[in-house]
Design a protein around this nucleic acid. Structure first.
Lengths: 231, 231
DNA sequence: GCAAAAGTGTTACAAATACACCCATGC
DNA sequence: GCATGGGTGTATTTGTAACACTTTTGC
């Protein structure tokens, strides 16, 4: 018989990985920290979980306080609990992630002064982040890559109306590979989850493309049939 | 500006979902609790995380203390943090899962007396479990179902040497559907990750089947090529 | 010889891939 | 008229699905 440890309190936080797509680039929502440790460093929006709140709810609250974004549906990614991940001692964090539409630049205004500012950063040009946030970011990018191959999460990132080429570019950016135009369009249209609109692009100096909408209802009907863009 | 909560301690635990396969049934490792709350109830092996240990390490320690099993590689499943999931107050738990081989009945001997005993229970006949463990179990079963469709985790559950029929039965049990014998064998052998042995089943009262081994090296070479048994 | 499971191939259909040219528009 | 991206079809290959009978073995 070995002696059993008794109840031990730990400090507990949430970090949010929020993806956006803008100017043909995949971006991630960052804050600039205004407190020690890692003062002035870039970090994922994250903070302590309250004693009396569920963690899903805490994630939404924290994201709002640090960035001003509300009502973002996030999913849990992973929990990070290395002993030395936080310089002040044992802090366990649950990472959440979401993909959102950047239509017309939603205002990013931290409601606390724990963050000096919040901003979108291209995922390809990130410096080293505070704590183990670089690792958390890396893991969420892998997750998004896997997930986009079988679920229509790409639509969350695009404006409501989009062209097939925009959609394809987004897939290419996330999967980091070129896709064949004809095959991509054939496959996408075959799923039957896009609704063609009676509308075209405007203001482009070349042939205007048709606009499409993601048809959530039709998608829900297929439901089990998962999309596949793995190859 | 709203006021920001300050550091808040939470109680933090790990729960382990361990799958096994025996007598043609999928089983899960349970303990019978010896302490309040939920004294005498069935529960997943789980306990408090130490102040100075990483959570992955804590998972291994806790599984050992409650069941006597050592060196089981577990993966993280999900973190459960509803406010009311634990009657004694706020307790956040990280669930881990693993699939293991039950060769010759490994001894199950709790090293603490927090568990009265540990035992294998068929997944189809579980009663309601302590805390939210029924929910945790349900989520891990879904995960295993998804994962077996694209990764060779089935081999972890079988004895080292097995027949194709045993392998097929395991897939059928986990996926909860019948598979076609000829197609299954064709597909499996085509992957090239099975090594045929110069050995046959013994002690059966019908035509003895060839035995196979999972060839981990060949699998690692394919690596990216994920197995598919989704339909 | 019979019960019980092992073992085996073909055909039909669906999905994925590779591949190149003309079209519409704004300037 | 030219630059730019929009839009389209076919042939090939690959993978999946459906399907039934003979063989081996222990008793």
């Amino acid at each position: 018989m070995i002696e059993v440890l008794h109840k031990i309190d730990s400090v507990f936080t949430i970090d949010c990985v929020i993806f956006g797509f803008d100017e043909g680039e995949l971006k991630i929502l960052m804050i600039e920290r205004n407190e020690e440790p890692y003062k002035n460093w870039w970090a994922l929006p994250g903070y302590y979980v309250g004693q009396d709140e569920g963690i899903d709810h805490a994630a939404e609250r924290i994201l709002y306080e640090l960035t001003g974004l509300r009502d973002i549906y996030m999913e849990q990614l992973y929990t990070f609990g290395d002993v030395h991940r936080h310089p002040n001692g044992r802090v366990i964090t649950v990472a959440y992630y979401a993909m959102i539409r950047l239509n017309g630049q939603k205002d990013l205004k931290p409601v606390t002064n724990y963050a000096r500012k919040a901003f979108w950063a291209p995922v390809n040009e990130l410096p080293e982040l505070a704590y183990d946030h670089s690792q958390i970011f890396k893991k969420s990018l892998e997750k998004v890559r896997r997930k986009i191959s079988y679920q229509p999460i790409a639509f969350e990132l695009l404006p409501e109306k989009f062209t097939l080429t925009q959609l394809q570019h987004l897939y290419e950016v996330i999967l980091n590979k070129k896709l064949d135009k004809r095959n991509f369009r054939k496959k996408m249209l075959n799923y039957g989850i896009l609704r063609e609109l009676n509308e075209k692009q405007r203001g482009v100096s070349y042939r205007a493309a048709k606009l499409y909408k993601f048809d959530r209802k039709k998608y829900m009907k297929l439901f089990q049939k998962e999309l596949s863009f793995s190859r």
